[in-house]
């Protein structure tokens, strides 16, 4: 079936929203820059438009890497959230809630502290990659564990998923707490950072790591859209519809772990994006993954950028950690969803 005009209009509007969020993210902050100057500074390498040197510096070295990271992470978290909900056949699955992000943070923290000795010899530009590798391993292990703990013929039950999330978050907190005893000052700062979640440490090194990891996720995940649709019917139905279920499941677990791992390694724990965004998109476009996945990427990137702008402005010149802001907005949303499902008896 061709995509109806309404759905195309919605996708187009989401694209516009993302453009708007990009301009805001470049222009707003402790130092406000007029929108036109921000755009000129962004396009100067192409157009040669004249821009004040300090504006150019702020946009190019502070706001642009931060904006790029926001796009990459927002889109990836929303995309992996949607894929995870399809894989678990449960619209409430979210990488942060079920402990995958905690697992990733634990993996990254182990690399920071324990790896400090062995990895000190590596060039600093590789640091984002070693942390991402740790986060990926942690995320992969957790996804697999949650899936094994909670799956049944009816899908993965919310209760076992959340309980697994609680257990893994507790384990992660305990081990990270343990690590603080042997960490030095620099390590301590990095550890605190995982638990709060922030785009504040944006750098082109991290952007490079994210482009590599998230790029792979963006390229491969949307190809499984039809298989994800079929999986929502149940695993044996998907098999009867010609989906190689085991292979698809393996690929989905690997890709979601890679996406979440990379996002956590670059920006720490930013929760609820993967829950809220797919839910909003389903309300607009329906659950068909062929439109859901691209729309989630657009809206996820836009919302994370807007939240980051808010985090910069609310207590300027200081800055709220982004993870705290998304949790403040996302947790009540999640509770409202839970209450609605409870009333329908669907929990």
């Amino acid at each position: 079936m061709s995509v109806p005009a309404v759905k195309r209009t919605i996708l187009f509007s989401l694209g516009l929203l993302l453009l708007l969020a990009i301009v805001l993210s470049l222009a707003l902050g402790p130092v406000s820059i007029p929108f036109t100057d921000a755009i000129s500074a962004l396009l100067r390498p192409l157009t040669g438009w004249p821009v004040a040197a300090d504006t150019q510096l702020i946009v190019e070295h502070i706001r642009l890497p931060r904006t790029l990271m926001g796009i990459l992470i927002g889109a990836t978290l929303a995309l992996t959230g949607a894929a995870m909900q399809g894989l678990f056949r449960n619209p409430l699955a979210d990488p942060a809630l079920i402990g995958v992000s905690s697992g990733a943070a634990l993996g990254a923290a182990m690399v920071i502290v324990l790896g400090g000795v062995w990895l000190a010899a590596l060039p600093a530009a590789l640091t984002p990659y070693t942390q991402a590798a740790g986060a990926f391993a942690g995320a992969l292990l957790t996804t697999w564990l949650v899936y094994r703990l909670g799956s049944s013929a009816q899908g993965v039950s919310m209760a076992s998923m959340l309980l697994a999330g609680v257990a893994i978050a507790a384990l992660s907190a305990a081990v990270v707490g343990l690590l603080t005893y042997i960490a030095d000052d620099a390590m301590l700062r990095a550890l605190t950072f995982w638990n709060l979640g922030s785009l504040g440490a944006a750098s082109y090194d991290r952007v490079g790591m994210l482009v590599l990891c998230c790029g792979l996720v963006w390229w491969r995940l949307p190809r499984q859209a039809r298989a994800l649709n079929a999986l929502l019917l149940g695993e044996s139905e998907a098999r009867h519809l010609g989906v190689e279920v085991e292979r698809v499941k393996r690929e989905l677990v690997l890709l979601t772990a890679l996406g979440v791992g990379a996002a956590v390694a670059a920006a720490g724990l930013i929760g609820f994006v993967g829950l809220v965004v797919p839910h909003l998109v389903r309300l607009m476009l329906g659950p068909d993954h062929r439109q859901l996945l691209p729309a989630c990427m657009l809206l996820g990137a836009a919302l994370l950028l807007l939240a980051d702008v808010a985090a910069r402005l609310l207590v300027a010149p200081a800055e709220l950690p982004l993870g705290i802001l998304t949790a403040l907005l996302g947790a009540p949303f999640f509770i409202a969803l839970l209450m609605r499902m409870q009333r329908r008896g669907g929990l």
């Binding site: 079936m1 519809l241 659950p287």
Partner: peptide
């Protein structure tokens, strides 16, 4: 199958269309 577990708000036509997937 005897029963299915679909918990997402697909339109009926979209569910039937999945039959043409292969």
């Amino acid at each position: 199958p005897q029963s299915s577990v679909l918990a997402f708000a697909f339109q009926v036509e979209e569910v039937v269309a999945m039959g043409r997937m292969p």
